[in-house]
């Protein structure tokens, strides 16, 4: 137990996490690209056309993983915000705020690809159905969190306030997920089920799952990248940040100098 808490403290300290994140990040991006290419090959080339929807169903390979990531990102953000507010852990504040833009991107993709899928299949770009509406509300919640975070000067206070808002909005996420079961609406039920058989054939399922893995890895890649920057920002005056800043200065100084002159 003692070793575990010690290990946790070590991992939670900004300099250690900064170093580990820097090491993990390329792996996340790289593996995301590899699994993504494999999943896209499986989805676009290998998988057969659907019996009802023909080739249009191939949007599923990005739509559904993105929808999962939109929800997952919100849960990840809210969980970190909870930890940050209760135990006042700096790393969690930064992690929560780092996951908001990534989650918002995936939610945006879900809405746009869903719209592009709905037009040929349902006959409409958009319908005010429970699931679509709550996905839109999810995007607005993300934007509210990001907006609040950028509106407050003090970084730590901003992260706490925005994290609190994320926790207030978390009630919405179960509504998004279960609304399709509560109201009988246009949107079909869940295809892939954790328990019980999925109503999709294996040749279509494995590319979908590969894409889900790829989007998860990608999500963590961008979250780690943003967290590294966020840690530098929050710990601005600390020694370890100073070392990194000066080390970076000693390296490729020419582009940095031009950057400064632009600003």
């Amino acid at each position: 137990m003692n070793i575990l808490t010690l290990w946790f403290h070590k991992l939670g300290s900004p300099p250690t996490f900064y170093r580990i994140a820097g090491w993990l990040m390329p792996w996340c991006y790289g593996l995301a690209l590899v699994t993504g290419v494999a999943g896209l090959y499986g989805g676009l080339v290998q998988a057969p056309a659907d019996y009802q929807q023909g080739d249009a169903y191939r949007i599923i390979f990005i739509h559904v993983p993105s929808a999962w990531m939109g929800l997952f990102g919100y849960f990840f953000m809210a969980a970190n915000a909870f930890v940050a507010l209760v135990w006042r852990i700096k790393l969690s504040e930064v992690l929560a705020m780092a996951s908001a833009p990534a989650g918002a991107s995936f939610t945006f993709i879900t809405l746009v690809t869903g719209s592009l899928w709905g037009k040929p299949m349902w006959g409409t770009w958009w319908t005010w159905d429970a699931r679509l509406t709550s996905e839109l509300v999810l995007l607005f919640l993300y934007l509210g969190v990001i907006g609040l975070y950028h509106a407050i000067e003090d970084r730590r206070q901003a992260a706490r306030a925005a994290g609190f808002l994320a926790l207030v909005g978390v009630v919405n996420v179960p509504i998004v997920h279960f609304s399709v079961n509560w109201w009988n609406t246009l949107h079909q039920g869940s295809t892939v089920r954790l328990f019980g058989p999925s109503s999709i054939v294996p040749s279509m399922l494995w590319p979908l799952l590969l894409m889900a893995i790829a989007t998860h890895l990608w999500f963590f890649g961008t979250v780690l990248a943003r967290t590294r920057t966020g840690l530098l920002e929050v710990d601005g005056g600390k020694d370890w940040v100073r070392r990194i800043v000066l080390a970076d200065d000693a390296g490729p100084s020419a582009p940095a100098a031009s950057e400064r002159s632009h600003v």
């Binding site: 509300v137 607005f140 509210g144 907006g147 609040l148 509106a151």
Partner: peptide, 22 residues
């Protein structure tokens, strides 16, 4: 959450309206 801000009108609407939807 927005009490200390100077111009919070639009931001407040952005925060509140999604929660008002249900």
């Amino acid at each position: 959450l927005t009490v200390g801000m100077h111009r919070s009108g639009m931001l407040l609407a952005l925060l509140v309206l999604p929660l008002y939807v249900p």
